[in-house]
Amino acid sequence: MDIFLQQIINGLVVGSVYALIALGYTMVYGILQLINFAHGEIVMIGAMVTITCINFLIGHNVNLPGPLLLALGLAMAIPVTMLLGYLIERIAYRPLRKAPRLAPLITAIGVSIVLQQAAMMIWGRNYRAFPAILPSDVVEFGGASITTLQIAIIALSIVLLIGLFLLIERTKMGRAMRATAQSPDVARLMGVNVNNIISLTFMIGSALGAVAGVLVAANYDQAHAYMGFMIGLKAFTAAVLGGIGNLGGAVLGGILLGLIESIGSGYLGDLTGGFLGSQYKDIFAFLVLILVLIFRPSGLMGERVAERA
């Protein structure tokens, strides 16, 4: 039983990170019907900037407690990724807003490759170790163990999710975002600056991505220029699973995907008698993606696509 509990915990930690990233995909999709494939790279750059920043501070003998150093790193990374998100939308997507939907999709893939290569030029090809500034105390309960960092990851994800929901449901800006998602033209008629709202959506999504990137890097103690690709793809799957365009769906999809992956790869070997081993961990995400696309294209909580078009 403790093994099962441990796999649940593993899944929750991974899943809450997926959820944070999936929100970035789903927010942009909700407003532009665009899949921003460069989002995974934003996650990676968030992690890289934070690591560089913390290393810089440590290198200059700034003696602060670990969480504070991390906060400073994040305080640097979030504006950088927000600016990047803004620029990507402004340069790569806005000129194509009236173009056929395939064009911005291909541009998105192009932006993703450009960012990945740029990161490789800046930070090199090697794995970068995440500075050992955070306590890695292990809490045991019920035979399973969880680190304080992992508890913090889940807690921080929940706080950010609640904050985002409040922002969207309770503020004037959130109402403008919802209006733009429903119909940009009508929103414009009502005096909403649609361009600003779209930029803002990219920036909020990027900020969440940066936090997620730092959490991933801190949890696995390393980051590298390619890390955004796979995690971006998984989070995208989570967004589709939950119903792309639906914020609650992104969270549900993220958590579910994390659990499916963790439990699936933990027991796959035993279930198939060693025929399929844990190296097939990554297939779960894509198996889920295929199944969702076949049987429920709008996702678990998604609205019907037809209403949108």
């Binding site: 093994i3 441990q6 593993n10 930690v13 696995y220 081993g277 844990s278 190296q279």
Partner: peptide, 21 residues
């Protein structure tokens, strides 16, 4: 236990958990 991963993976939690058992 014989488990597998790939040369790009960074998350070994589920493998290690089943090994821990």
């Amino acid at each position: 236990k014989r488990e597998f991963t790939n040369d790009k993976e960074t998350d070994f939690n589920s493998i290690l958990t089943s090994i821990k058992g």
